[in-house]
């Protein structure tokens, strides 16, 4: 799989404090790559380094296989992004803002600007000054400017901040559409774990500037899963049987499903045990949420 973004031992130090250290990120073409971490973990610092706002103290960044700092113009013309708040020229219209910002990458036509505004539902406000926009509208305009030049990689730093539930859903769907239908690669940082769970194909978790995990979402969640949902019949017999097994702990039961905690590597053994005792197993699957995973790798770091 082609690597669109790759960082090598990337680090940034402010004074004596390392905001990011030893980061080796790998984003593949077509990924919706989510970058997770508590407040102050170093997410924005990393994004700023990737978008050349900060100079790395250590390491290198390769985009589309080329060194970012040696081929800045060629590389950045294939990237769109938002870093933190989308701040625009308030005294200019939405249309003019996009036209001017887009023209810094390449010549953009009126139709392209209108198309970008249409995608985020702002075409009716194209001529209005950004001063009159709400935060959510500015956020959508930020996404429009990131899409405007049809980049191959879009870097979005918390793109749903300030959006209402419908707006968040719209952005989520837009992100999925961009990746699936247009083959864009999305690099997304967000605090909203539920949102990431719905869209991410791969992710990385950063904590105190250091990478804690990286991989596909399903792979990461499955890797350390210990809690399982079990659907078995007869359920009472299954419960009785499991109570005598030292590596199984029954957590709860609603009369239909049983939630159990297994010592690592015992899932198949439990299945075998139940079947051997004439208990029908309809389902046995890991129940681990992204939140559980996140809290584990960041050791319950506050601020998320």
């Amino acid at each position: 799989m082609e690597c669109v973004l790759k960082t090598f031992d990337l680090g940034k130090r402010f004074g004596k404090r390392w905001a990011a250290r030893g980061l080796n990120l790998e984003v593949h073409r077509g990924d919706i790559f989510c970058f997770l971490g508590p407040n102050g973990a170093g997410k924005s610092t990393t994004i700023r380094m990737i978008l050349t706002l900060l100079k790395p103290t250590t390491g290198a960044i390769r985009l589309f296989g080329e060194d970012l700092h040696k081929n800045r113009v060629a590389v950045l013309s294939r990237v769109g992004g938002i870093v933190e708040k989308p701040d625009f020229y308030l005294f200019l219209s939405a249309f003019k803002n996009l036209k001017l910002l887009g023209s810094m990458t390449r010549r953009v036509t009126r139709d392209e600007v209108m198309e970008a505004l249409e995608r985020v539902g702002l075409s009716a406000r194209a001529g209005d000054k950004v001063r009159t926009f709400s935060h959510g509208m500015k956020q959508r305009l930020g996404i429009a400017q990131a899409l405007l030049t049809k980049p191959e990689l879009i870097i979005l730093d918390e793109p749903t901040t300030g959006l209402d539930p419908q707006g968040m859903k719209d952005v989520r769907e837009l992100i999925q559409r961009l990746a699936l239908e247009e083959g864009m690669t999305i690099f997304l940082s967000s605090h909203l774990l539920s949102e990431i769970e719905q869209v991410a194909t791969r992710m990385a978790v950063i904590h105190r500037g250091e990478m804690k995990a990286q991989g596909s979402v399903s792979e990461l969640l499955a890797r350390e899963a210990i809690d399982y949902a079990l659907q078995a019949a007869p359920i009472e017999q299954a419960m009785r049987l499991m109570q005598g097994v030292p590596w199984v702990q029954v957590l709860s039961s609603d009369g239909h499903m049983i939630e159990v905690r297994l010592e690592p590597g015992h899932a198949a053994e439990l299945n075998k045990l139940l079947v051997a005792n004439q208990i029908e197993v309809a389902a046995l699957y890991p129940r681990r949420t992204l939140e559980d995973f996140f809290l584990k790798v960041t050791k319950g770091a506050p601020g998320i």
Binding site: L51, T52, L53, V73, L76, V79, G81, F88, L101
Partner: peptide, 9 residues
């Protein structure tokens, strides 16, 4: 932030 993430140096 919007300005400096564009291709021009």
């Amino acid at each position: 932030r919007f300005l400096l993430i564009r291709p021009p140096s």
